[in-house]
Simulated scan of single mutants.
Amino acid sequence: MITITLRYPSDEPGAPEDRLPKTMAIGYFDGVHPGHQAVIRKAVELARSAGKQASVMTFDPHPRAFFGHGEAYAASLTPLPEKIRLLGELGVDIVYVAVFDHEFSSLEPETFVRELLIERLNVSDAVVGFDFTFGRGGAGNPAVLAELGAPDLAVHTVEPVAAAGAKVSSSRIREALELGDVALAAGLLRRPYRISGAVVHGAARGRTIGFPTANIEPDGRYVLPRLGVYAVNVRRGDASYPAVMNVGVAPTFYGTGGTPKLEAHLLDFSGDLYGERLDVDFVAFIRPELRFDGVAELIAQIREDAEQARRLLAFVRQ
């Protein structure tokens, strides 16, 4: 799979792949959840049956973040590198990352379809979700896409995927994480919610109280779950370790301000992890982050949290 940055307008010659006949799934695809996967798999299926390239067009940054619709959209369920990795697992050949800036956001629907999709990228089949919008002011929808593309561009609209009594959406997953309901988020994603990053040096307080932690600096701006303590699986290469993770500001030591940190205590591991990259899969919420009156009370609670995490993770693995 290759990744191509797409700008509009551009005086640079297009990539050789631009001229290849292709199908294209179009969307932001934050989380690459089952609804997104249905769109992408349809594009891959059409491409394979016709002997064409399977492509995806996604955007960076999130259009809502670009238009200033809330700081929340500056963070992602799947930052761009993770999104690209997941797209590759779905069999995509080419990922176009469209730079969503003033020029791109101002494209008229007809220009987007005719000049960009058909003439520049040689797209014969576009696959979109039922609620897809495009063009300046979001004026385009699947019906407009089909009208503007005919007869050169066939449009395939994919219906929503449901879970827990409603359609799966990135917004529902974000809401579940805000509540700390990582089990619901996993059910909607059909995989655990994951945050990846490198282990960096921290204050080493965990080591001094008998619970050394890996302080993880995320690879990108992830949506963080509610501040609190979680049972997680930490993946290090091919190995997986049960762990208890605190997402928070360590109020016992630092008060209630500050930037949340990710600190994982691996239950069956001893050694040096500094500089290594870890994947953290959130399994269950244990409790909210609390401020304790002293270190002894904190140690007792961490011990209890670790045992609860071990029980929860053992149950999930059965």
Results as ranks from 00 to 15, higher is better:
residue 28 Y to G: 09
residue 316 V to T: 12
residue 100 F to L: 10
residue 120 R to G: 09
residue 106 S to A: 15
residue 110 E to H: 13
residue 128 V to H: 01
residue 19 R to H: 13
residue 206 G to W: 05
residue 305 D to V: 04
residue 303 R to Y: 10
residue 202 G to A: 07
residue 257 G to R: 12
residue 302 I to D: 00
residue 164 A to V: 02
residue 118 I to E: 02
residue 178 E to K: 14
residue 132 F to N: 00
residue 217 E to V: 05
residue 165 G to E: 03
residue 80 L to K: 02
residue 187 G to Q: 13
residue 61 P to K: 01
residue 168 V to C: 08
residue 241 Y to A: 05
residue 11 D to W: 04
residue 230 Y to D: 00
residue 78 T to M: 01
residue 209 I to V: 15
residue 141 N to C: 08
residue 13 P to H: 10
residue 34 P to S: 10
residue 163 A to D: 08
residue 268 D to N: 15
residue 36 H to W: 08
residue 189 L to T: 03
residue 206 G to C: 07
residue 170 S to K: 03
residue 289 E to V: 09
residue 171 S to Y: 04
residue 187 G to S: 14
residue 59 F to Y: 10
residue 290 L to Q: 14
residue 131 D to T: 11
residue 191 R to A: 13
residue 83 K to H: 11
residue 294 G to C: 15
residue 170 S to P: 05
residue 131 D to R: 13
residue 62 H to G: 06
residue 38 A to Y: 12
residue 114 R to E: 07
residue 153 L to E: 02
residue 106 S to N: 13
residue 293 D to N: 14
residue 98 A to K: 00
residue 231 A to Y: 02
residue 235 R to A: 13
residue 138 G to Q: 10
residue 72 A to T: 14
residue 34 P to W: 04
residue 127 V to H: 03
residue 80 L to M: 15
residue 244 V to D: 02
residue 249 V to Q: 03
residue 12 E to D: 14
residue 6 L to C: 10
residue 204 A to D: 15
residue 69 H to M: 15
residue 249 V to Y: 05
residue 279 D to E: 15
residue 20 L to I: 12
residue 51 G to F: 06
